[in-house]
Write a protein that binds this DNA or RNA. Structure first.
Lengths: 223, 223
DNA sequence: TACCGGATACTGAGCGCTCATTTACCAGCC
DNA sequence: GGCTGGTAAATGAGCGCTCAGTATCCGGTA
């Protein structure tokens, strides 16, 4: 059975510390976890500082001992979510052939988003509530993620393992499949994160290995 | 060139009337269109009745002549979005073979979400702001959409045209690709809605026609 | 051991403000 | 003269955040 306790990345204290960072105080981590839960359920603007703090037994003012503002708390959540997701991609083996490489990347990306679908939902849905500076900082992290996949696909094309697919389009499709998980995934559903990872990795490989059909070039309308 | 004026489904008065419904007054339709724009940019809770009404030259109270509440306005937007999207699926030819059928469904679904990505974003992202009753009503519409795709895939499997794929999983992937469009699609990007429709239709067919790899059955963890 | 000084964590009242909605009123118009 | 579509002002609730004050802990000192 899937580890249902890990679905919001705060199963145990040790897990929580590893996820949010060892340098943060336990109370800070509790507030982050509470924020994740509240933002995921109601969205940033509909959750109050009272909601967040009362869930960890603090009064409203207690939040400002640990964070400068509600928005800062959101930013720490979203940044950590993106960094952790990127970490799992970075720690993937590079040595294997292009097919194994892409398979592993997709698997990791999907597994991460399934296991951390609550953090993921906040990271994807509440971006618009960030300040422009914070927003830009997150977009920078995303460009990194995108380029990891693009490099993997390009490598397969160069090697001749993959068909001559449109890299941008295919990578966008791969990211869509992973990202959209956070919208519908439920830990009590039929699939474990690993099963979904395997399944989507299979889909992805079919996307890049089958022969390219005659596809109109980008920039021209077919109509 | 893609019809950029139609990207929020309110290019002309006639288009607007056809989209929102002929029975609605022009001012109502203007408010709906303004609501779409505001909700898409800032989200439901962060947009004020002033934002919505001032964009059409009304005072805040003017909204309540046409809608019972801000939530009701949101509901009308989301309901209409889902109904219109479903309409395009329903009006697709049934007669052709399973492959042509699925191709056409995906194409229509993708084209609709690209052309109406602003309405689509509100429909997908602001569901949580609806009242429980309204929320449930939307979920009902979604089940319809899902079953249209499921029937199409099942038909291909029964006919022997498609591989013996997992219908639930594949359809979820198809819906993910279409739905996630509203998150990233920009009308000034490289792809027109039709091109994306063709591209994703191609991906989808590869998903269902290639041989099934050895995939673990759902419900058991691979770990 | 006893005491002190200061840092840290937190409380909870409440300020200043904004919000959705209501109400009272008004102008055309069939 | 009521109906429709609108305004402006008022209402009351609730928001993020501040701040004066309290509790607790800890190292240094004698």
């Amino acid at each position: 059975m899937a580890r249902s306790a890990a679905d919001s990345s705060a199963g145990t204290d040790a897990e929580s510390a590893r996820f949010w960072g060892l340098e943060r105080s336990e109370q800070s981590r509790r507030l982050l976890t509470s924020g994740v839960r509240c933002f995921a359920v109601s969205g940033f603007h509909a959750t109050t500082t009272r909601d967040i703090t009362s869930a960890v037994g603090l009064s409203p003012g207690g939040l400002y001992v640990h964070f400068a503002s509600k928005e800062q708390l959101l930013f720490e959540i979203i940044r950590t979510g993106h960094v952790r997701s990127l970490d799992t991609l970075r720690s993937a083996e590079v040595g294997a052939d292009a097919q194994a490489r892409l398979r592993e990347l997709v698997r990791r990306f999907v597994v991460w988003h399934a296991e951390h679908h609550v953090v993921g939902r906040v990271s994807q849905y509440e971006l618009g509530a960030l300040s422009p500076q914070h927003h830009e900082e997150i977009l920078e992290l995303r460009r990194f993620t995108t380029s990891v996949f693009q490099d993997a696909v390009r490598r397969g094309i160069d090697e001749g393992t993959f068909a001559d697919v449109d890299v941008h389009r295919v990578v966008r499709a791969i990211l869509s499949l992973g990202v959209d998980l956070v919208r519908w995934y439920r830990p009590d559903g039929d699939d474990s994160p690993q099963q979904l990872g395997d399944f989507y990795a299979g889909l992805t490989l079919r996307m890049v290995t089958s022969a390219t059909e005659s596809m109109p070039p980008a920039g021209l309308d077919t109509a």
